[in-house]
Design a protein around this nucleic acid. Sequence first.
DNA 1: TGAACGATTTGT
DNA 2: CAAATCGTTCAA
Length: 212
Amino acid sequence: MMSRVVTNFLLVNNFNKLDQSFYLQEPFICLQQTLGKLLVTNIHGQITAGRIVEVELYMGGVDKASHAYPNKRTKRTSIHFEEGGKVYVFRVHTHTNFNFTIGPKDVSNSILVRAVEPVIGVDLIRQRRKIYENDVTLTNGPGKLCVSLGITMGLYGYNLILGETIFLADDGFIMGEEEIKKLPRVGIDYAEEFVDVPWRYYLKSSRFVSKK
DNA sequence: TGAACGATTTGT
DNA sequence: CAAATCGTTCAA
């Protein structure tokens, strides 16, 4: 049961929370469809949201860039093996990275969100980032967007479909296939034959993409 | 371009 | 328990 705060938030903004069917789509469809969606957090009643403008696909069964390759189950990767729609957060030194899992149970695919554009709660986003201008540097990177939206390691395994602390939503934003740039993923030099696969998608029109 | 920033995983 | 390994951010 969704709280009235979140229900009202969705109603007054005309946003639709994404349901299970979204997360069970074919991986590249899911990757493409994630662009333009809203990543919403409700941290102790403080709502912030960003439009997703840059994403990467990881496929743990075959993909040497994935933490879950080759379907490796550890404490860190275990969430990949549940049904899609769960939060996978991991940390690189001081930085938190936000991912969500996709696909059926036992298929270890996930999508990393690398950049968003602030949409809701921009003042709070600025406070969290300690930046007091409207600058692309607020949210143009995976660590930055986690700080902006209050995403922490405590959300590991969180259910994006049933929960209301963090979820994805559709506000009717539409983009064409020609609006999407497809390039190799960032920071995976070790991934051998997967180094150059173009599984990083971003919106060409966005100033908030982490690097062009 | 380089310094600074921990945690996870594996092997011994 | 020791060693290897993994990227992002910010300053300059």
